[in-house]
Structures are given as structure tokens and as C-alpha cells.
Amino acid sequence: MTLMKKFLGAAAAVAVTAGAALADPAIIFDLGGKFDKSFNEAAFRGAQRWADETGGKFLEIELQSEAQREQALRRFAEAGANPIVTTGFAMSTPLSEVAPDYPDTKFVTIDGWVEAPNVHVVGFAEHEGSYLVGLLAAKASKTGTVGFIGGMDVPLIRKFACGYAQGVKAGNPDATIIANMTGTTPAAWNDPVRGGELTKAQIAQGADVVYAAAGGTGIGVLQAAADAEGVLSIGVDSNQNHLFPGKVLTSMLKRVDVAVYNIMTAGENLEVGFEALDLSQDGVGYALDENNASLISEDMKTSVEDAKAKIIAGDIKVHDYSSDDSCPVLDF
């Protein structure tokens, strides 16, 4: 309630004196919604942690239409919010149009790509993290068949799938990988029912480890895998091991929360540039906690740690789908 009053006060203040400096950070969640248990929620957790620790406040909005992207950016910029954090690759184009109009405001894109002096770009090496969980999947699979379920068929998800497939092949060169996408509309990011059905279909084809990179849809994947006998799932973005303890092999961590937390901590003094968060900075990784300790054997742990060290050292090159729009081990 107090938060709301502050927003209203801010809105009123803006209406009267345009350009009043609010200097609170703002965050814009993509169409998947704030509580997708995955990508956007990780961003929210980071912002919330910052607010809890500093007592600060942040403006936020969950987008509900494409035309709102630019609208939300401009409104927050005009309200004096700084920095303005955006999640999702779809913000790239609106951001590149809005950012030059507000040179004193710092914008952040997570997963997007914008070249402007006041836009901070945060990119994650999802292919590296996916490689590690793929390796674990291959080692954990008894049938030699593993599954991948993506949200929409977009380049970012292909990047996940391609890294995963490379990891699987590294763990077991004869493994079969079944890859499916949930849908062709943005609803695919939030369709746990269909996620569950796809998982059952993959299980019927022999898959016994299924990796979900599908936002809120992944909950259905994890559920269906947990319901089936002897099938494990792999979560994504946030640590999802706790959702079904003992049934989730691991989670591919994408530390969006850390990135958002650091950005909000830096606040207006954020150093603008390109921030590549890969394995070496723990920007991506695999989750190991008490919920999945029994599933990861010593042997698996050694080989995945070994692969991690080699990727960091540059001895293993994980092919990045987005670098040339192709994947050596998986056809789309």
C-alpha cells in the first residue's frame, strides 16, 4: 500500500513537474510474467533482494502487449527512474529506439543486444551451462535417450538446445536426443499442460532425462517427469531442484538474479558496457544442493567439474548457436 502511494505520488509529481528526479531503479518484466518460476522470477528475486537489503524501492511492470515495450521504457525514463532494467531479447529494438532520447538515463538489457552509450548489455553463456547439464543427463540416463523441451522455437532456445546436445554427446556419443518446442505463440512460455504432454510423449519414446528450457511451461515438464517412474528432469534459469526433491537431476542456473542485484546496487553509478556472464564468472552453471545430492554420483561430479574447468580454460569449445545460426550435433 505504501509502495503504491509512492508510485501514485511519483506519477502525480511527474504530471506536474516533468523530469522530477526519482532515481529509483525500475525493472520491466517480459511477457512471460513476473512469477514464471524461471527467467523473469530470477530477475525479480534479484531486485527484491536489493530492496530488502537496502530498504530501497523499485518501479516495476509486467508487460502485457508489444506496444507497451516502448511505452513502459519512456514512462519510466520520464519519471526519472535510473537505471531501467529490461529482461528478454525482445526489448532490443524498442530499447535501441528509446535510449538515445534519454541520454542521462542508464538502461540495461538482459539477453538483448543494443549498441548505445547508455545501454548496459548483459549476456549469458547459456550454451556452456546447458553443456554441463547435458553431460550430467547423458551420465544419468539408463536408456541412452534424453529429451529437450523448449518454449518457442526462437534462436535463444536453440542456443540452449545446441549446448545441451553437445554436452549429451560428450557424455555418451551414442545417445539419442529428442528435442521438441512447446508452441509457436508466446503462450508457449506459460503452458505447463502442454509441457507435461510433450514430456510424456518423450518418455514414451524412451527418454529418461528431460531438460526444460521453456519458462513457466517447464513446471509441467518437471511435474510429468516426477510422476513417471525412473524419469528425471532438469530445470532452468532458477534453481528448480526443490520443486520435486529427488526427481530433478539438476538445474541449469542462469544467474539473472545476481546480475540484477549487482546492477541495482551500482544504481546510477552503473558502469555501462558489455557484461558477458559465463562459466568462469559463475554467471551460468549447474545446481547442486541437498535436493539432488543423491542423484549426482561422485563420478558424475568429477566429470562435470572436469568439463567445467576445461571450458573455462578454453580446452573445450562449446559451439554457440547464435554465432552462426547452426548447430553441429542437432537439427532444428
Binding site: 531479447f89 532490443s92 522455437d153 526462437v154 534462436p155 535463444l156 508452441g183 509457436t184 505463440t185 547464435s322
Partner: peptide, 25 residues
């Protein structure tokens, strides 16, 4: 409607998308 969504998705990801862009547009 579904066929249209799938067709558009295919075309935007595989045909109309500028090389290297992450956004299916």
C-alpha cells in the same frame, strides 16, 4: 489461427530473420 502462428514462426525464425539476430523478427 494455429496454422498461421506456426507458419509465421517458421518464416521469422528461418527465413526472414536477419542473420545472427536473436529476436525472431
Amino acid at each position: 489461427n494455429f496454422i498461421a502462428a506456426s507458419l509465421l514462426n517458421y518464416l521469422l525464425v528461418n527465413v526472414l530473420r536477419p542473420k545472427g539476430a536473436m529476436d525472431p523478427a
